[in-house]
Amino acid sequence: MITPDQVRQWARLARLDLPDPELERLQGDLDKILEFVRALQDVPVESGSVPDSVSESERGNHPLPSVERPDEVAPPLSREVALEEARSTSDGHFAVPAVVESEAQYERRTGSAGGDSNENTVLREDSDSREPGSSGDSNL
């Protein structure tokens, strides 16, 4: 039986925000699906390394040969075209909010005081640091 905490951990690994009702629903579904796929573990197979299904041509076990092409310089997408579909840009770049969160943001996210030594992703800022939300790009 998988637990809500396990589903939360997978969601965190996958960078997926899951509201509680969805989490509850998915927990039940995933439990049933995992129970079903667990049967695979009883299938007798040759042990050994995991075959790479795309380039396994040496073993004659897959029809795809490796292919090579000449390494030639070709024009890339222009900066203009590459940025066309982005919702937020700045000076010819993709714009994103702060990569490192402020202490206040950390506290709001975790509901606890910052400074835990295990949380090495949190950088402490000076007390006169900008307000959360003002540190990102103005286009946001």
Binding site: R15, L16, L26, P97, V99, R109
Partner: peptide
């Protein structure tokens, strides 16, 4: 407000239930 939040919220709001599953 942060890049991480941008990722998780974009994906949480943008994907349907089967895709999340």
């Amino acid at each position: 407000e942060t890049l991480e939040e941008l990722y998780t919220r974009t994906r949480g709001e943008g994907f349907g239930l089967e895709v999340k599953r």
